[in-house]
Simulated assay, not measured.
Amino acid sequence: MLLAIDAGNTNVVFALMDGHVLRGRWRIATDPRRTGDEYAVWLLQLLAIRGVTPNQVDQIIISTVVPRALHNLEILARHYFDVEPLIAGQGRAAFGIDIDVDEPRSLGADRAVNAIAAHEKHSGDLIVVDFGTATTFDVVDFNGAYKGGIIAPGINLSLDALVGNTAKLPRIAIEIPKGTSVIGRNTEDQMLIGVFWGYVAMMEGLIARIRAEIGRPAKVIATGGLAVLFDEATQIFDAVDADLTIDGLAILAERAVSK
């Protein structure tokens, strides 16, 4: 079985793949100080609940945008699973795609992996929108080349900035505003309308500009925690794929076997 690990700025996601079947997915808050031993105490118990022992995991692949977290995840793989992990973008797990930007090495592993999975699963030109700590828009052409994109503050980051820099605004939960009016009648409604519908307008506007610049039809693939919520409020997405990053890691791991 494959253990795919996606270390993001907010959470580290662990996904257990048995062939093409997802056996389990778990997440823990990202903390670069967390040791391999601490990961093991937490993860091995979760695997045991699913009836999985460490020796059943024969392949591990790690993608991280938090360099300080990598060493401890490698320790987890080597000491508790007796597996030398693949690192997305390196060695046998090289991305293998054309990264057509000014500084290819600066591209985050998660975005490259998303591009790989999106091209594998969908045809034509693609725009991949990933809702994470930041919201990223990535353009993948019909040949699978990564052509660039946009980085915008994530909606929770925007809300944190709003609440943290004002004296009287309360913290609110992100949800679809009730009713159809965009004129709020109280402070909480006004905040929610501004943050939520403002974010939808930003997405729709940026995607329209990207499509116009590409000059060809482009499918929009959404992933990340809030993709499903926004899918209820806009028609801009052609597909919502919560497992896009994990699928990309599984593709890289499968390719590595044949190298």
Rank of each mutant, 00 (worst) to 15 (best):
A145K: 08
Y146F: 15
Y146Q: 01
Y146T: 04
G148E: 09
G148W: 04
G149I: 13
G149R: 11
I150D: 05
I151L: 09
I151D: 02
A152I: 12
A152F: 12
G154L: 09
G154F: 08
I155H: 00
I155R: 04
I155P: 01
N156K: 14
N156D: 15
L157E: 05
L157W: 03
L157P: 08
S158E: 08
L159Q: 03
L159A: 07
L159Y: 02
A161W: 11
A161I: 10
A161M: 08
L162M: 07
L162W: 03
V163A: 12
G164P: 13
G164A: 09
T166P: 10
A167P: 08
K168G: 04
K168E: 14
K168I: 13
K168H: 12
K168N: 09
L169M: 14
P170K: 00
P170C: 00
R171F: 07
R171G: 14
R171D: 14
R171L: 12
R171C: 08
I172S: 06
A173H: 15
A173K: 15
I176F: 05
P177V: 01
P177Y: 00
P177I: 02
G179F: 13
G179D: 08
G179E: 13
T180V: 12
S181H: 05
S181T: 12
V182P: 01
V182R: 14
V182K: 11
V182M: 14
I183Y: 12
I183L: 15
I183E: 03
G184M: 11
N186Q: 10
E188D: 12
Q190E: 12
L192E: 01
L192R: 15
I193H: 04
G194A: 05
G194V: 07
G194E: 02
V195L: 09
V195D: 00
V195K: 02
V195H: 02
F196W: 03
W197H: 14
G198F: 00
Y199T: 10
V200H: 01
V200Q: 00
A201C: 11
A201F: 10
M202C: 04
M202T: 04
M203C: 02
M203R: 05
E204A: 09
E204G: 06
G205K: 10
G205P: 03
